[in-house]
Amino acid sequence: MSAAVVLNGILLGGLYGMSAMGLSLVFGVLRLVNMAHGAMLVLGAYLAVLITAGTPLPLPVAGACAVLLAGGLGYVLQRHLLTAMLVRGANGPLVATFGLSLIASGLVALRFGSDPVSIPTALGTAGWSLWGLDVRAAYAVSFALAGVVAVALHLTLSRTRLGAAVRAAAADPRTADLIGIDVRTLYALVFAVASALAALAGLLVGVAFSVSPQSGTSYLLIAMAVVVLGGIGNVLGTFAGAILLGVVQTLAAAQFGGGYRDLVVYILFFVVLAVLPRGLFGRRLT
């Protein structure tokens, strides 16, 4: 039984990693704690529901549309609202994103009610047997996607010229501006990618479990714990931290019962903050 629990914990960690990737990116590059990250995740799931219900598009296409829409929304928000506030200090955007998250969940609740919905698909219920262990297909797919995204993001940031420009704009926006880097557009691009990843995570959560207008908060907390674990702005660390959290949480739930799932997240969060403030794998970008 234990091996199955660990394996499922690892795979659940993939889903958590996906949920945290955007938060980590925005935190690392923009030094902004995006309080609307959870809301964007929820919004992604509901957008997909809305599109599948209103159009004949198959779920994967509808999902892709939802992800792109979320990315566009993120771009506009950062470009036309948050960057201007960021220039004057980190508090403005913090409050603003919190406000945005309240508005978003309010709107979702108004349109869909506050009962949880899940995205019906064969993937949600399918399972495989891996080395004799039962595995949920939704978990496995999330894990694979999260791994690919983490590696791709890492390589883009560390190896490409675009990534160097993002790191420069994060470290010293004034000098970056001076040498011809369009800092505002880069910031908006980063926020757009983060929003799209949040929406993708929401989609996967909706397939694997269910979402409600309120679930944004708990995913925001999980994502924060993961980011703190993995090191701010360190995307590979985020992925690793997420796996760790997934395993610890699943083990705790198996040991003490499901009621302890969330408590474990908070305990891990505080222990890491107190003992290893730079996370398990150190800080990047900044």
């Binding site: 160097a164 420009a165 420069a168 000098t175």
Partner: peptide, 25 residues
């Protein structure tokens, strides 16, 4: 082009990355 007082190189980026930043992507 403006080479500002006090250098302002990006300490975490390599020499080559620092140089390439000033070129169009």
């Amino acid at each position: 082009a403006h080479c500002p007082e006090g250098r302002r190189v990006f300490p975490a980026l390599s020499v080559e990355e620092n140089l390439k930043l000033a070129l169009p992507l």
